[in-house]
């Protein structure tokens, strides 16, 4: 009974030891960690620390270049871009995180059950996974959003759907490896029901690689959310959101007013970079061999 717990404890201790080693070896992870804390801080506190109302337009200050007053300049209706970029952090992070959590939960549970019970459950899961994977994912997301409408919930669900296969596949493979493991056999002999074995012994042990997957997935989810907004299939204006802001500023790139699109794009890029670096670091932590 205690096998998985002690296994997990051991893994945790090893991971901590390894983590220190990695931070020393790869200072980039530290930078990424600091950046993530900053982004989380902006997401939590952003709306109280910005200098301007992100929605307040000002007809006298349209498309002003970055200045002492407007650090990031103003957009075509005179809104302060810095304030909008900061306030958008929460929405962008929240949508992506919700989508990742949702697909993580649904994918891992479906994949684990499929791998553990086999039979029709497995056939259905793999059919669903294969069908989703038959599409270019971003194109599928477009198709779904257009059909179901651009509400916040729909966007989250759509992003979750297109990420579902990666978790389901991974969970199934992980469970398959562990199904015959010693501690599972021990739990079976101790009279545990299959459901209990899956929930208490097998599933928790499959989580580490899935969590790594989730952290690597976060950046991609953010790109997808912003991408959908950019082409008009996501969050609606005038809500401050990075994708929309770039989209609105895009037209002015040709005429030289670069700041309207540049700063929100930069913020998005940095956020994605942060999560990608963290994902890499976490993967090194959990599975040092798969380093590239």
């Amino acid at each position: 009974m205690s096998a998985p717990a002690s296994g997990a404890g051991f893994a945790l201790r090893q991971a901590l030891r390894h983590g220190r080693h990695l931070l020393a070896e790869n200072p980039l992870s530290l930078v990424a960690f600091v950046m993530m804390v900053s982004f989380l801080g902006l997401a939590l506190l952003g709306q109280w620390i910005v200098p301007f109302d992100p929605l307040a337009s000002d007809a006298t200050a349209q498309l002003q270049a970055p200045s002492r007053v407007h650090w990031f300049g103003t957009d075509q209706v005179g809104r302060d871009i810095l304030s909008r970029v900061v306030v958008a952090t929460r929405l962008d992070l929240a949508i992506s995180a919700s989508a990742v959590v949702l697909s993580f939960a649904a994918g891992s549970v479906a994949g684990a059950c499929a791998g553990f019970y086999g039979g029709w459950l497995e056939r259905i899961t793999s059919r669903v996974v294969d069908t989703i994977m038959a599409f270019p994912l971003f194109v599928l997301a477009m198709g779904i959003i257009v059909a179901v409408g651009t509400t916040l919930t729909n966007i989250i669900i759509t992003i979750a759907v297109i990420n579902f296969p990666s978790y389901a596949r991974m969970a199934r493979a992980e469970v398959n490896v562990r199904r015959e493991a010693g501690y599972v056999e021990a739990a079976r002999l101790a009279g545990n029901s299959p459901g209990r074995i899956l929930a208490l012994h097998v599933y928790p042990n499959c989580l580490p690689p899935l969590i790594v997957q989730a952290s690597m997935n976060m950046g991609w989810a953010m790109l997808s959310v912003a991408g959908l907004s950019f082409i008009g299939l996501g969050v609606r204006p005038p809500t401050p959101e990075w994708g929309i802001m770039v989209s609105e500023g895009a037209a002015f790139m040709i005429s030289g007013e670069w700041w309207a699109a540049f700063f929100p794009g930069l913020a998005l890029m940095l956020a994605v970079l942060t999560f990608n670096l963290l994902g890499d670091a976490l993967r090194d932590l959990v599975d040092p061999r798969r380093r590239t």
Partner: peptide
């Protein structure tokens, strides 16, 4: 490679337009 993976396409497209056209 890491930077490339983090770059939103619409952002890189607009930067290219700004630099090479404008």
């Amino acid at each position: 490679m890491t930077m490339g993976n983090s770059m939103p396409v619409f952002f890189s497209a607009l930067l290219l337009v700004y630099v090479f056209y404008y």
